[in-house]
């Protein structure tokens, strides 16, 4: 369970996150949407300790991220993250990209790590790309490798930061399909996305952020058809063509 309690964060004088409160239960999928600059990526990065916050508390499975005794490296092992621009290691093959952390962090043997990596590549549909370099893959394939790389650490939570917004339209679905499967298998996921089809299909909760605040939350069709907030209404009307 991830609990976000009264979290505020500043970059200098600029307040990016304003009193955020949210709880994500195990097995749930939460979708975050909102206009550019509203603090979505920052919130994700706070959740796995890549960014510090100045007020409030984020607690993952009972461990507070701001507690100096918390080992952030250890905590991140169970929180995978997928980025908009994939962020694969360009100088390593797909297989090395996936096996690196399991071998160095979990101390798995090469054989064990590669076996797991191949299973994951099978699962995301590109086992034949194991020995390619990232540059030789399409965007959709790269993003699926990135997901496999995160899953190789056998995380309990997965964070996705606009995983499909750098992709050509014809590749979006191959990535979303993988994510839908993950959600249905019970992975706990926090997904920043504007793919409302995906949100409708798997989200247990949808939150809408604007200027660092959560201004609307919903868990069902209500959110799309009858949002309470004017900003949400406007935003949804723009993305739900």
């Amino acid at each position: 369970m991830i609990e976000i309690k009264n979290v505020s964060k500043w970059f200098g004088d600029f307040q990016v996150l304003k009193d955020i409160n949210e709880t994500i239960q195990k097995g749930q999928t939460m979708v975050i949407c909102g206009p550019s600059g509203s603090g979505k990526s920052t919130l994700l990065r706070c959740i796995n300790g890549l960014e510090p916050y100045q007020k409030g508390e984020i607690i993952v499975d009972g461990e507070s991220l701001s507690d100096p005794k918390t080992n952030l490296y250890k905590l991140r092992q169970k929180i995978g993250m997928v980025f908009q621009r994939f962020e694969l290691y360009p100088h390593m093959t797909v297989l090395k990209n996936i096996t690196l952390a399991p071998m160095k962090v979990l101390k798995k043997s090469k054989k064990e790590a590669e076996k797991k990596a191949m299973e994951l590549l099978e699962r995301v549909g590109i086992p034949d790309k194991a020995h390619e370099y990232p540059a030789n893959l399409s965007g959709g394939q790269q993003q699926r490798v990135a997901i496999a790389r995160s899953l190789a650490m056998e995380p309990e939570y997965m964070l996705f930061d606009e995983p499909t917004s750098a992709l050509d339209p014809e590749m979006i679905n191959e990535v979303l399909d993988v994510m839908v499967d993950l959600a249905k298998e019970g992975m706990t996921m926090i997904v920043v996305t504007h793919e409302m089809g995906f949100a409708r299909e798997v989200a247990d909760e949808i939150i809408f952020m604007d200027e660092g605040r959560i201004i609307e939350r919903g868990s069902d069709e209500e959110f799309f058809t009858n949002p309470k907030n004017e900003r949400t209404k406007l935003f949804l009307s723009q993305i739900l063509v």
């Binding site: 990065r45 490296y73 092992q77 962020e87 690196l100 990135a146 995160s150 964070l159």
Partner: peptide, 9 residues
């Protein structure tokens, strides 16, 4: 960040 997110130090 991607490297750190895999749990590496």
């Amino acid at each position: 960040q991607a490297v750190l997110s895999t749990g590496m130090t």
